[in-house]
Design a protein around this nucleic acid. Structure first.
Lengths: 129, 129
DNA sequence: TGAAAGCCAGACGACTTGTCTTTAGTCTGT
DNA sequence: ACAGACTAAAGACAAGTCGTCTGGCTTTCA
């Protein structure tokens, strides 16, 4: 039994970052931004990464345009939340709250960090009301 | 270039869980708990996992006893914090606060969850004062 | 219609990871 | 002190991942 596949690999993530930062793009544009140069092999690499991201439903492709236009269909914070949920499942039996507590407890949060978190919680409270 | 190695793999984690739950153990004990049976190959597998965990400084081995006794040298919450930091580094440029914010924002925390978090923050405040 | 670019499928090599085999070392009861 | 049983250590191995590349095809546009 070999290792379990990662949700998003490093190379895939770097493509996603470009899509988040610059919006809908073509393969060429992405390649230029990522590698500062364009070649047959490099664009093929990006193509493959996009293909895999498309399979994972993190990116969508507009096939009606030429060249195809790619855009992210997860937001950065959604992906983060998903990753955290995965970690929670593995280490805390899915208890996100446990994980949050561990996190807040163990890592040194600054006073400002704590303050902004508290504000955030307040907002949530009033929305939920 | 292949993928970057995982911090703790699934099989390694299951060994760690046993150490967390039952404390210092021998290879045989771990094997029995994990597989409900003992064989040459299974114990060798556990042995190898322990060896790798030792290399990662997550487990220590007492070579003075026979058979060797193994124990975890990270706590569960330390490992969790480390995993989260890794995620933060990858997705938020290391900003743990950003990650926390994303998390709290995106995932539905219950009112009780929010309350316990707030209490936790209060505790931290008074300790830090 | 021919050149330039993009699309796609498949192949590849380096690496990871869980498992197993083999050999050598250590303990136990008699 | 020796047979038998167990443990330790090292390495091999298969299956899978992942980033990269090649080569053949399609589309666009001058």
């Amino acid at each position: 039994m070999a290792r379990t596949a990662q949700d998003v690999t490093d190379a895939e993530l770097s493509v996603l970052q470009m899509l988040w930062d610059h919006g809908t793009s073509s393969v060429r544009e992405l390649t230029e931004r990522l590698y500062k140069e364009v070649s047959l092999s490099l664009t093929a690499t990006v193509q493959k990464l996009l293909e895999r991201l498309e399979g994972k439903k993190y990116v969508k492709r507009d096939r009606k345009t030429w060249p195809h236009q790619f855009s992210a269909i997860v937001r950065r914070d959604e992906l983060i939340a998903h990753q955290l949920q995965t970690t929670a499942d593995k280490l805390c039996e899915g208890e996100l709250n446990t994980l949050l507590t561990c996190l807040v407890k163990t890592k040194g949060l600054s006073a400002e960090d704590r303050e902004s978190l508290r504000t955030l919680l307040d907002d949530l409270d009033s929305n939920a009301k």
